[in-house]
Design a protein around this nucleic acid. Structure first.
Lengths: 111, 111
DNA sequence: TAATATTAATTACGTATAGTAAGTTAAAGA
DNA sequence: TCTTTAACTTACTATACGTAATTAATATTA
């Protein structure tokens, strides 16, 4: 049983970020272009507004997401990916290919 | 605000799987080769035995991990990746490259 | 035979994170 | 000033996680 080398802290941080619940799917949705709060919420039905709000803050703090306020009536707020965020696109391609190859769905989900 | 197409269920399932806490790191550790319970636990210091046990079962149920029992004294149990599990390796390469490019560490973590 | 040692796994219990639903804030037009 | 609407926020409940003690299995030792 040989010991492991410790994890690269950058790698560990990236995994922490991306494997937090909902974070990956929120980024994935934003890959389609800027989205408003209700738009993201509507496309991820099991994600609560509370958590979406938290995650968007975290993503903004990490520099993956930008928040733009348009003082219209009612106020419009758009979330979009920064370059750092958009650069995750290949990762999602990768997951998509893996899923297409390996994930079997139960009959009920296939119709 | 155009509506989103619903997520591909395979993709969604893959994300669910991989973004569950600790799962990705456990798979990553197993990419080095077969590991025993204590070995994995030792390499991920903040992961409790309880959750490691749960995750290994889930990964086994999903067909990413194989569990081999060697009835020695004391019993030796080895966990290893199946082909489905090993096929996630490029994903981790991808995350590693993204992290190297984008993750800035606080001074304290850099020494 | 009984006590011991070792690894894997489970259980009980407290804390943390997430989900639900109702409430609040802010902006501008009526 | 009142209304409307999107974007939060809060109080509460439920689920997931972490810690530490415990159990199971099995061979070795006293």
């Amino acid at each position: 049983m040989e010991p492991h080398s410790p994890l690269c802290p950058r790698f560990e941080k990236a995994i922490d970020l991306l494997s937090k619940r909902w974070t990956a799917l929120i980024v994935f949705r934003l890959l389609d272009g800027p989205q408003r709060f209700v738009g993201i919420a509507g496309s991820l039905p099991n994600l609560s507004g509370k958590v979406l709000s938290e995650r968007l803050r975290e993503l903004e703090a990490e520099g993956l997401v930008r928040r733009d306020v348009y003082p219209e009536t009612p106020v419009r707020i758009e979330y979009s990916l920064t370059e750092k965020g958009r650069d995750l696109a290949p990762l999602f391609d990768n997951i998509g290919r893996w899923a297409a190859k390996w994930i079997e769905l139960p009959e009920d989900d296939r119709r």
